[in-house]
């Protein structure tokens, strides 16, 4: 079964990932995404009638906890080391104000 992904969908997905695509790229990716999804669709051909659903690869592993014990943080200096922009001990990002 082959899938088709229209350009509007590709545009939407690209926006959700904050990617800017030009027309040519939209064309390319709609084809590629369709091919990928068709390939994944092959999984539907497998009979899973007797297989219990799971969300994880290691079905037997459950309840992995850690104790509520403090561990040293790495500190602001180390945290900010690779940040593209900082101010004082803050990460600096393009202006984000909700509603504006």
């Amino acid at each position: 079964m082959s899938k088709t992904i229209d350009k509007t969908t590709v545009k939407h997905v690209a926006h959700l990932s904050r990617l800017e695509l030009n027309d040519k790229e939209l064309e390319t990716y709609s084809g590629q995404l369709a091919a990928i999804l068709s390939y994944i669709d092959k999984l539907n051909e497998i009979d899973t009638k007797d297989v219990a659903p799971t969300s994880h690869a290691i079905a037997s592993l459950k309840n992995v906890f850690r104790k509520d014990v403090l561990k040293p943080s790495i500190g602001a200096k180390e945290s900010l080391k690779n940040a593209p922009a900082t101010e004082g001990d803050f990460f600096k990002v393009p202006q984000i104000i909700e509603g504006k």
Binding site: R66, D68, V69, L70, K71, P72, S73, I74, G75, A76, S79, L80, G88, D89, F90, F91
Partner: peptide, 27 residues
């Protein structure tokens, strides 16, 4: 009001200097 964050051992103390309670997991 746990001592540490949900998924790492960083402190949850209120009013500390910015980004002083961070680690690779919560970042």
């Amino acid at each position: 009001s746990t001592n540490t964050k949900a998924f790492c051992g960083c402190s949850t103390k209120f009013g500390q200097p910015p980004n002083s309670q961070t680690c690779p997991v919560c970042l």
